[in-house]
Design a protein around this nucleic acid. Sequence first.
DNA 1: CGTCGAATCTTGACTGAGTCAAGATTTTGA
DNA 2: TCAAAATCTTGACTCAGTCAAGATTCGACG
Lengths: 178, 178
Amino acid sequence: MTFTPAEVLRDRGIAATAQRLAVLRAVANSPHITAEGVVAFAQADIGAISRQAVYDALGVLVNKGLIRRIQPVGSPALYEDRVADNHHHVICRICGVVADVDCAVGSTPCLRAADDMGYEIDEAEVAYWGRCPTCQAEGRTTTVLDTPSSRRQNQRRTRPEELHPTHTAKPEEISRAI
Amino acid sequence: MTFTPAEVLRDRGIAATAQRLAVLRAVANSPHITAEGVVAFAQADIGAISRQAVYDALGVLVNKGLIRRIQPVGSPALYEDRVADNHHHVICRICGVVADVDCAVGSTPCLRAADDMGYEIDEAEVAYWGRCPTCQAEGRTTTVLDTPSSRRQNQRRTRPEELHPTHTAKPEEISRAI
DNA sequence: CGTCGAATCTTGACTGAGTCAAGATTTTGA
DNA sequence: TCAAAATCTTGACTCAGTCAAGATTCGACG
């Protein structure tokens, strides 16, 4: 028996508000979406929704384990709804696209430190960094991401999908990591 | 033959300014130091130094491979001068202290993704999360870090050394990760 | 069904950790 | 010694959040 998203929320003990359902749809629509991306999607989806309500909903949904929050270095926070496993991510240093990578172990912590120095470790967070197949094919070797220094003259952010316009809608698409 | 820090900078093709040498001393003094911590140390060390000069020096020193920049999720950037190996870090979820962990492999990337999806991976970034020995001994289970929500009524940041005042100056001390 | 308290939303302000940029100063090389 | 480049100082600005007061909605209870 499949629960509706509203039922899932109530089952976790939180109200099934229109804003939260819109946020869930945004995250389902775009794995590794930014908070700002969720705001844009939800505003198009249900009309008026405040940024604060989006941040609140994201926080609650993460807290209840319904979505996951990651944050590669140099990136705003990203959200995904793949929460049933302990997977990792690979990030392209050039265009910033983020993809899921299965964890070879499956449960946390999936790695043991050689010497844990007395720490009680409950999670090994792994991020793989490199170049995606498209940036390799195009021979790109330096980032063209919208780092602050590249934003002179009010150039706006370059998104991975701008670099790769022929990209089909892969599941790992449309996040902005760096 | 040991080079002086100034000689090392010149050898890397950059000017050995007083500001950069002060920044190097700050990072040597406090592994996993924040930029703000570097500013405070350098100001005490050499008198007047601007925040911008510290950020500039940190950027150049990272770029030249003389120091390393890490950034655990939820933390400002941290700087360390242990650059000769590919080590990882363990972060206490309660007090935020960061410690170095040797990499079992030693070279990058030290892990292979089970399925790299065509990515050309050059680094596996690993962070271990858990509780430090001191927070375990004190039975702490929830963070008392200065998260924004805990900053009501203008309470200032709790630093790991405030939680553990009897800490001797361990090498992994005085950084603030979360 | 009405009421009330809690939860949530809206709106606008604020913060931390950076970055930007103009002008001044210092460094370096010819 | 000089000039160009590098670097520093100073003050402003940005981004990605968070804060908080008041309004609105929701849910439980009688």
